[in-house]
Design a protein around this nucleic acid. Structure first.
Lengths: 143, 143
DNA sequence: TATTGTTATACTCTATAACTATA
DNA sequence: TATAGTTATAGAGTATAACAATA
């Protein structure tokens, strides 16, 4: 016999539907304004929000594979949004740093992100948002 | 000057990280057991969980484009997990129905899904889960 | 030998346009 | 003309292996 099952109670499905719906609209902003892809946006925001760091550090913080970061860094460099600086003590590393143009782009997108988040937040109570963020962070860490 | 911004507070980012982390592990089950892709799994679960319906109805319920559903249906048919029945009144439609084998697969995966969800749920309080599901459903509906 | 990063490749996923058949 | 579904195609995203350079 066929079991009872409602997808609306299944967490991975719900999370994906919610994530797709929300990120789709933000995606349009960085894509249309700057032709950036998803990983490029993430790398830009890590450098802008947390300061200069190596590709390796971005991998660890963002949970991204080194090949993805490598390609995103190259793309951001081609757009003149970041520059690399060799580390003399260990020449396998390069410190990645936003250019002034990269910082302008970051600031512009941060504004968009903040407005976007406020609009989303306005639909929920403070309690709901607190719980949501706390639970999502823990879910993401289970990876 | 560079603005303050923490990705850990940005909803689309958080949602994606949580969704990726959770669905990645469930994905392995239907991929390794039955070689199914994401959309195939979704279509199978719609038919198994909500009963026979047309491709169009799956599109509406799952928020999937007709091309995705069309390909998933074909793949499930090739695997002998579903069969089509023409609707005489309107020959543009076909009712999609799981085969006995498709139902066995559905039942097996529903078991996995339930165990998976219980394990996830065990890490949170009832209040947290209620809030989470309610908020996620509303976020998904904003699409 | 181990680590940082790059390149190559294949596969999955998404989005859109053009098409067929039926209504 | 409109709708259900299919096919074609391109671009984006993911995963893995092989590689170069440095340590």
């Amino acid at each position: 016999m066929t079991q009872d099952f409602d997808l609306k109670d299944f967490m991975p499905y719900l999370l994906n539907q919610a994530a797709d719906a929300t990120s789709l609209r933000f995606q349009k902003l960085y894509k249309s304004k700057y032709g950036m892809l998803r990983t490029e946006w993430r790398v830009l925001f890590h450098l802008g929000g947390y300061g200069d760091m190596t590709a390796k550090e971005i991998c660890n913080r963002a949970g991204l594979h080194k090949t993805k970061v490598s390609r995103a860094v190259r793309a951001l460099q081609d757009k003149r949004f970041l520059q690399r600086t060799e580390v003399p003590e260990d020449r396998r590393h390069e410190i990645l740093k936003l250019t002034p143009q990269g910082e302008r782009v970051f600031n512009d997108l941060v504004g968009d992100a903040k407005r976007f988040d406020e609009k989303l937040a306005s639909r929920f109570t403070t309690d709901e948002l607190d719980t949501l963020k706390r639970v999502l962070v823990r879910l993401a860490d289970l990876a």
